[in-house]
Computed example of a mutant assay.
Amino acid sequence: MTLPRLVATDLDGTLVRSDGTVSDFTRDVLVELEHRGVPVVFVTGRPLRWAEEVFEYVGAHGLAVVSNGALVWDVARSAAHLERPIDPALGLKMCRLLRAAVPGTSYAVETLEGISLEPAFLERHPVPGAARRAPIEELFTRPALKLLARHEELEPQEFWDLAEETVLGRLVITWSSASSLLEISGPDVTKASTLALLCEDLGVEAADVIAFGDMPNDLPMLGWAGTAYAMADAHPTVTEAAHHVAPGHDDDGVARVLAGVFDL
């Protein structure tokens, strides 16, 4: 068996435990892979402000795919390596269409500087004190890495289906939350498409990538990678799409699989 040349892993629900930590065992496995010349790329829906919390584990190569593929961040230089944002004109057009089709939709936008939210957008995580609150037309005036759409009454799958029917592929819509929060990216921007660009730069083929994920926003990446693992507690669509199932994220599933694959 040819060993993978690159590891691509989601964070929440995959590499990171429920309490937000990365175990010593997982850290040791990632460090050993780095020593062996196998880069571990974090591929996350987290915005940069949250992804930074685990950058100490990313390894000396120092690259992470953030915001579902909208940003490749050079950890070592603390600078953007690649940005794939949403054009404001297109984004605002989609906001108007979605709100007309699904009344009660509220919005927020993520940029390198942080999050800005509509007054009705009820964020489940702590919001930075400097975060701006205003109508989306006042917030979305320049390219954004991610557009967030929230609904307080619909179920996640129902909200996603209605949004897909409205947007018709003009933007990429996915979700990874237990609440009805849609994560919207620019045209053709997914974890997979950005990871493919990064791997092309590194000279790594899709067949040589082993990937791990647990939620619908991981589906493109798992479909692209040569070897795909769903976590034991993954969303059913992810389990169905993956080649294999890893132990759960609270059981160090990613590290346990990697230790076996690389005979650590």
Rank of each mutant, 00 (worst) to 15 (best):
L30D: 05
L30P: 04
L30K: 04
V31L: 12
V31E: 11
E32G: 13
E32F: 06
E32K: 11
L33R: 02
E34W: 02
E34R: 07
R36Y: 05
G37N: 13
G37M: 13
G37A: 11
P39C: 06
V40P: 00
V40C: 13
V41Y: 02
F42P: 03
G45D: 02
G45A: 15
R46F: 11
P47F: 03
P47H: 13
P47W: 06
P47A: 09
P47R: 06
L48V: 06
R49F: 08
R49P: 03
W50Q: 12
A51W: 01
E52Q: 10
E52K: 06
E52D: 14
E53P: 08
E53Q: 15
E53N: 08
V54D: 05
F55V: 09
F55P: 04
F55K: 04
G59H: 06
A60R: 14
H61V: 01
G62N: 00
G62W: 04
L63A: 05
L63T: 01
A64V: 11
A64E: 00
V66G: 11
V66E: 07
V66P: 08
V66L: 08
S67D: 14
S67Q: 10
G69H: 00
G69I: 00
G69R: 01
A70Q: 00
A70S: 10
D74T: 12
V75G: 10
A76Y: 00
A76E: 13
R77D: 04
R77Y: 00
S78T: 03
S78P: 00
A79M: 07
A80R: 05
H81V: 03
H81A: 11
L82F: 04
L82E: 14
L82W: 09
E83N: 05
E83M: 07
R84I: 04
R84T: 11
R84Y: 05
R84D: 07
P85Q: 12
P85A: 14
I86Y: 01
I86K: 02
D87C: 10
D87V: 13
P88I: 01
A89T: 11
A89G: 08
G91R: 02
L92C: 12
L92D: 12
K93L: 12
K93I: 04
M94L: 01
C95A: 15
C95F: 10
C95E: 15
R96Y: 04
L97M: 07
L98Q: 04
L98V: 08
L98T: 05
R99Q: 15
A100G: 08
A100R: 10
A100H: 12
A100K: 14
A100E: 15
A101N: 10
A101M: 14
P103V: 05
P103F: 04
P103S: 09
P103R: 08
G104L: 06
T105K: 05
T105E: 03
T105P: 01
S106T: 15
Y107V: 02
Y107D: 09
V109P: 03
E110G: 01
T111R: 08
T111N: 03
E113Q: 14
E113C: 04
G114F: 09
G114K: 08
I115M: 10
I115P: 00
I115S: 09
S116A: 14
L117V: 07
E118P: 03
A120S: 15
A120G: 07
F121N: 08
F121K: 02
E123A: 15
R124L: 11
H125C: 03
H125N: 13
P126E: 13
P126A: 14
V127A: 12
P128A: 09
P128R: 14
A130V: 10
A131E: 09
A134W: 11
A134Y: 03
I136A: 10
I136L: 12
